[in-house]
């Protein structure tokens, strides 16, 4: 069974590239959501193995979305990997301190992205 993962990002292009990367490079099943609210909704309905969550989004940003996922008992257990455009280590540490499974930075290399996610989540690739 291939892994399945939910990508939540407001940028259509990034969503598309990331989905393509995970599908073609790793062969995972990918679902997407274009906002935090939609992401929470889809996570609850789809119950993905993991969620790739963009931090900087208009309206409900990554932190709020993560908080919402945590508060919902049906999604609280799903591991979340944050994707941020900020490369500063102190910021990454702050984000990691929220309780997420891991933090990855943009821009990413589509060929290594699945490996990086798998490493964070402890999946075999």
């Amino acid at each position: 069974m291939p892994h399945n993962i939910l990508i939540i990002d407001d940028e259509d292009d990034i969503r598309a590239v990331a989905a393509l990367s995970l599908e073609t490079v790793a062969g995972w099943e990918v679902a997407t959501a274009n906002s935090g609210a939609q992401g929470v909704e889809r996570a609850e309905s789809l119950q993905p193995e993991a969620i790739l969550l963009d931090v900087m989004m208009p309206g409900m940003d990554g932190r709020a979305t993560f908080a919402a996922l945590q508060q919902n008992p049906r999604t609280a257990a799903i591991p979340v990997v944050l994707l941020t455009a900020k490369s500063q280590s102190s910021e990454r540490e702050q984000l990691a301190a929220l309780g997420v499974a891991g933090v990855l930075t943009k821009p990413f290399d589509p060929l290594t992205l699945p490996g990086a996610i798998a490493a964070v989540l402890g999946w075999d690739t």
């Binding site: 990034i14 590239v17 990331a18 393509l20 990367s21 073609t24 455009a85 821009p107 990413f108 290399d109």
Partner: peptide, 12 residues
């Protein structure tokens, strides 16, 4: 953000 798309698309 746009660079992520470009970089990703080109990489793939």
């Amino acid at each position: 953000t746009p660079l992520t798309s470009i970089r990703g698309a080109l990489g793939l």
